[in-house]
Write a protein that binds this DNA or RNA. Structure first.
Lengths: 134, 134
DNA sequence: AATGCAGCTTACGTTGACGTAAACGTTAGA
DNA sequence: TCTAACGTTTACGTCAACGTAAGCTGCATT
């Protein structure tokens, strides 16, 4: 049976991806340089698959969260448990705990920051009203 | 009337702060170099006030959120509306909107990442059980 | 008196994450 | 045919955020 599948076979050029995610082609090539991406080739030209595109999305999400590319590599590798080794799995679970800890810390930080911003905004608006009355 | 206040007068040395926040003294001096901190001096020696300590906390929170030191500077400056100018206040409010946008994006990213991690962990545990049975 | 912290300044070095320029190959369209 | 748009490699440059080392002050304890 042949699978009639949606995404399979979808291809992207490097400039397509760079436009879609609003980054330079240099960045994309850089991610390949350090082994975060490894697209197929047609001749010299890079051909990105759906999976490559997903990895790139994860990398950029990591960046938005302030992760280094190395951090992102670890996290991304977690999603592919081609690891049958039990010890590795246990290590993975530990790593996941650590990441979850960091993320919860971030959530905490963000909620505090949002509160602060709200307060700052309220102060501003207040100041505006007061000044406006004069 | 004299205020009988809790924190006022509390002082910190640079090494105290470096231990409390688990960073190097070099970092703290660096934040001063770029004008993020400006502690008092007793002779040559830096004396950090409660307010300085708070600023440092904000800086580090920003770092955890992946902000650059310049970003942090902007945000921290928002909390001190010594700005009577109406235009500046309006600019501030705009800036706050922008920051809020970023933070909401981050919240979104984090919740996705947490979901992913949960899934990855579940997969790991699954794999462990399966392997364990053999 | 000497040793050892804690602090200081000055200044060059390093790392990560790309920017930027040069020099080149392929393909489509005027 | 040639030029424009896209792709490639190689390699040096840059910027932020410190690291690191040298060489200097106190101050206190042994």
């Amino acid at each position: 049976m042949e699978k009639a599948h949606s995404d399979i076979g979808t291809e992207y050029s490097i400039s397509q991806l760079s436009k879609e995610f609003d980054i330079t082609t240099r960045s994309i090539r850089h991610y390949e340089d350090i082994g975060l991406l490894s697209p197929a080739r047609r001749g010299q030209t890079r051909i990105y698959s759906q999976a490559d595109r997903t990895r790139l999305r994860l990398i950029l999400r990591g960046k938005r969260l302030g992760l280094s590319l190395e951090d992102s590599r670890e996290i991304i590798d977690m999603y592919e448990p081609g690891k049958t080794n039990i010890d590795q799995l246990k290590k993975l679970i530990d790593a996941i705990q650590v990441q979850r800890g960091k993320l919860n810390q971030q959530l905490n930080d963000i909620s505090k920051l949002l509160k602060d911003l709200n307060q700052a905004e309220a102060d501003c608006i207040d100041a505006l009203k007061t000044n406006g009355r004069q």
